[in-house]
Design a protein around this nucleic acid. Sequence first.
DNA 1: CGCATAGTTTACCGTATGGTCCATAACGGA
DNA 2: TCCGTTATGGACCATACGGTAAACTATGCG
Lengths: 208, 208
Amino acid sequence: MARPRTFDEDQVVCAARDQFRTTGYTATSLDDLTAATGLGRGSLYGAFGDKHALFLRALDSYRDEAIAAIRADLSTAGSPLMRLAAHVHAMAAFVIGDTAQRGCLMAKSAAELASTDPEVARRVNQFLTEAHGLLAECIDAAQRAGELAPGHDPAQQANLVLVVLRGMEAVIRCGAPPSMVRDAAEQILALLPRPTGAAGSSDPSDRV
Amino acid sequence: MARPRTFDEDQVVCAARDQFRTTGYTATSLDDLTAATGLGRGSLYGAFGDKHALFLRALDSYRDEAIAAIRADLSTAGSPLMRLAAHVHAMAAFVIGDTAQRGCLMAKSAAELASTDPEVARRVNQFLTEAHGLLAECIDAAQRAGELAPGHDPAQQANLVLVVLRGMEAVIRCGAPPSMVRDAAEQILALLPRPTGAAGSSDPSDRV
DNA sequence: CGCATAGTTTACCGTATGGTCCATAACGGA
DNA sequence: TCCGTTATGGACCATACGGTAAACTATGCG
């Protein structure tokens, strides 16, 4: 009983998310957003409130997709360790392939806003916590499958893996060569302690 | 034969650097800078040119101090591996102790500007390259001292260590618990391959 | 003591920003 | 068809931004 919207809300959030991702929050103007979404200011404000609220929506969207991607990597076919390796390699390929240097919206938002904006900080922390949980779960499965040495806390090992993953994202934006990311990915997989009796320290290529 | 300056240029750069570090580049206004430095706009522009030039000066200053700090860590007394461990632990303590969440200016600048500002990108990359060189040098020394297993490329191992160090900085700003940083620091040191015949995989505490 | 030079201070400028308002348009229901 | 309701688009607003101009002030030299 009223005029219907001419846009899909999710598509608009997606367009805004891409814009925020390339320009950052502060440096993205409303003109940028109207250009990116195709909506006028009135529609944008009517649907989302203001710039900050739209940014939070974009952040939610990015976080959900990022977590879904991790879950997908860790749910492919194969043994737990193979799935962990698949994710690490996927992340390495992702950051290396980001030739436009658009980077991870989570990391960029954390750098720009997390220290002053609690709502951003909460979302970034959610992402980190969920990612850690998924990694720990997979590492635990790998231990129980006998692929990784038992007796190590999966949560602690997931800490290291997560730090490496976030570090790969960080260094590539510092202009690091792809080889730095590749090396880090291969080594972290090779160095996770294997059960005694099984090799796996020096040549990772035959294990993962 | 002219009116002398009433300020010390380095002190001003230092004050501006702190301001940029807490607020970022775009979100730092000239009023913020005049307040932080105590200088008027005229003096600021007369001495440094404009906001961007002042930022680059601040970035140079930060990079130089950061590199000097790494070099200092890696030059303390003790064996090469002990010095490497000292640096990793120092970095962990540093990021954990940054309770104000001010973060690393290099990382924040890379996130905010490196993709669009070549001059920032160059400085960030310099920092990364120099840090990598220092780490590789120390790892090489540890290999030659028999503390680390030979046969691994020090540059490659430095890649992993550097990724972990930058990752620690990244996750802490995502609200990660200090334990995540501590775990990553301890594990990366424990997992670097030791010479055959020497243990070092399961209990790091007695080695570093 | 002036005078040239350089530093400081303050007022100001054009512009771009985030946000609002309102006239208009498009729908469903009566 | 008419009306209530909601969406749209563009004009508009106050403000804050980076940067500039000019008047003023402090120094060294002659």
